[in-house]
């Protein structure tokens, strides 16, 4: 094992989209227990530097593995279908229509009930897309198709984030 192993190899997990979050959390803590700089605090600078590198690498992998969107993005890349979110923005027209409709709904949502209704639709949609991505990656092995879905999912995550910000403002 070295610093260049894939996140999945480092965590000892099968390379696939479907993962159990508690298992990822558990493995993260096990790995940090071995490599965290605090374990080597009494052993000088060289030890600290090496431990820092490993510990940073483990945290990087953890951030990517635990988040379904980041995990899907990473997996597509590993499978040779990079997401290229900035250069590749082509989306089906109906998807864009739906996005516009949601944006309008968000702008118009005044109270908590309206916001909640919208949040529910977005959450549903997100769940469907994740299931679809799992199917494409784990069952059909179609990374390019999955990459398309991941790009769409990025839009969904963005609006979900904006909805949350609105909730936060309402709560204050």
């Amino acid at each position: 094992m070295n610093l260049h192993y894939s996140d999945f190899e480092l965590f000892g997990l099968p390379q696939r989209f479907a993962q159990e979050r508690p298992e990822i959390d558990q493995r993260w803590k096990e790995l940090q227990r071995e490599a965290h700089p605090d374990r080597f605090a009494a052993q000088g600078h060289t030890a600290q530097r090496a431990a820092l590198q490993w510990s940073v690498r483990i945290n990087e992998a953890y951030q990517r593995l635990k988040d379904p969107l980041k995990r899907a993005t990473y997996l597509c890349e590993l499978l040779g279908a990079p997401i290229q979110a900035h250069s590749n923005t082509a989306m089906p027209a109906e998807f864009l229509m739906e996005q516009m409709e949601w944006r309008e709904a968000l702008d118009e949502a005044k109270g908590e009930p309206a916001l909640e209704a919208l949040a529910e639709r977005v959450t549903e949609r997100r769940k469907d897309m994740l299931a679809r991505i799992q199917q494409l990656l784990d069952e059909q092995g179609d990374a390019p198709a999955a990459a398309k879905q991941v790009r769409a999912l990025m839009f969904i995550e963005r609006i979900a984030g904006d909805i949350e910000t609105r909730f936060a403002h309402l709560g204050q």
Binding site: M1, N2, L10, F11, G12, R27, E30, L31, E34, A35, A50, A51, W54
Partner: peptide, 10 residues
Amino acid sequence: GIRKALAGKN
């Protein structure tokens, strides 16, 4: 040392 420890865990 760290490499072995991590590999062992896995």
